[in-house]
Amino acid sequence: MERELLKGNTPTLILAVLEEGPLHGYAIAREIERRSDNALTFKEGTLYPALHTLEQQGWVISEWRKTAGERDRKVYTLTPAGRAALEERTRRWDRFAHAVDRILKKQERDEESPSLPPNSAWLPELHPGG
């Protein structure tokens, strides 16, 4: 399940990392790794097609930058449109995560909606005593 979730959300993660400032591909991979405390691993080569798609959508721009003594690097920068897209996706993710939390965690449900009926309301014969 983790891999499927990650595959769909890779562009969003890239946008979030670039919000702090422009980076090149290798650094984006390291930053995702660092921020997730090594919990999220993925094949780093798949970053580049995702970056290209983001560029096509106008959410990032790229440019080659020469660094003194080092190899050239292609650096990606977040655009204002990209920033807006990131906000929208963050909102959507929050809604989704919150909804799943409510289903999975009884404590959260009880805090937010104390009047929710228990399972026995649907099938009283299976849950004697409530």
């Binding site: 094949k43 780093e44 080569g45 798949t46 580049y48 097609p49 995702a50 290209h52 798609t53």
Partner: peptide, 16 residues
């Protein structure tokens, strides 16, 4: 290993 199998990357590009 960290970068990924070359075929998978190529396929990701073709899909993109």
């Amino acid at each position: 290993r960290q970068f990924g199998p070359p075929r998978r990357i190529a396929r990701a590009w073709i899909e993109a």
